[in-house]
């Protein structure tokens, strides 16, 4: 299956960067799946709460189907304003724009988090030096910036689902580096830690299944 990483989804990156996950997913949903709950390959749905309550259909490989409570199971916990469900029989429509849109959203979120981590450390000090200026901190920042650059380059260069996999991995690494940069603040359930978790769960729910390689 090839999922196009179309450039016309770039604006989701900008909205995620400026306003966070819920705002970017709301826009993505309005433009690609209005009225329908988008599902991942395991039948998982992970969307802002207001979208979950407003949709009367869910996505399946054969097109949208009307919701039926008996097929749904809420998956507990809200992260960054998003809720999760599992719907039996739900799944992505071939060639749908949602999975690649989600990857763009995650790119913008990673950039947002790294920007926040940078700001946070600019205002902390270690023996009168801004923490941001410590060489080991700069090294982590560079690793995170490299991960973002790799994801952005993949978007620009290579359509298709292998690229989408690598984009998600690279953004996962950036998220973990941001958590290290934030210190214990990122371990709290709300704030940047909750945002990293939401971003990871988006990848967990919506990354297309990787085609099995022969002999591997």
């Amino acid at each position: 299956m090839s999922t196009a990483l179309s450039v016309d989804q770039q604006h989701y990156r900008a909205v995620a960067f400026a306003h966070g996950a819920a705002a970017a997913l709301t826009l993505l949903h309005a433009e690609t799946s209005a009225g329908v709950l988008p599902a991942g390959p395991g039948g998982h749905v992970f969307v802002p709460e207001h979208i979950e309550s407003a949709c009367d259909r869910y996505e399946t490989p054969d097109g949208p189907r009307a919701r039926d409570g008996a097929r749904e199971e809420p998956l507990g916990g809200v992260s960054a304003g998003l809720v999760a469900l599992r719907i039996r029989g739900a799944g992505p429509t071939h060639g749908g724009a949602w999975p690649s849109g989600v990857a763009w959203v995650r790119l913008g979120l990673a950039e947002r988090l790294l920007g926040q981590a940078t700001e946070h450390l600019r205002h902390r000090t270690v023996q009168q030096t801004a923490t941001l200026n410590l060489p080991l901190v700069r090294a982590m920042l560079a690793d995170a910036a490299g991960g973002i650059a790799e994801a952005a380059a993949l978007f620009a260069a290579a359509p298709g689902s292998p690229a989408l996999h690598r984009i998600h991995r690279s953004l996962d690494e950036v998220g973990r580096l941001c958590l290290h940069l934030f210190g214990a603040v990122g371990f709290l359930a709300t704030g940047p830690g909750g945002d990293v978790r939401a971003s990871e769960l988006l990848a967990d729910a919506y990354t297309p299944e990787r085609p099995e390689r022969e002999g591997s």
């Binding site: 998982h44 998956l75 958590l179 371990f187 769960l201």
Partner: peptide
Amino acid sequence: FGPGARWEHPLLDKWLRDARAFEFMEGTSN
């Protein structure tokens, strides 16, 4: 594990969340 593993395997999800604490306890890796 497959898609949605963080929900389908709650113990793995818990360990993943727990594992991230150790970076900070008694001083970060740096």
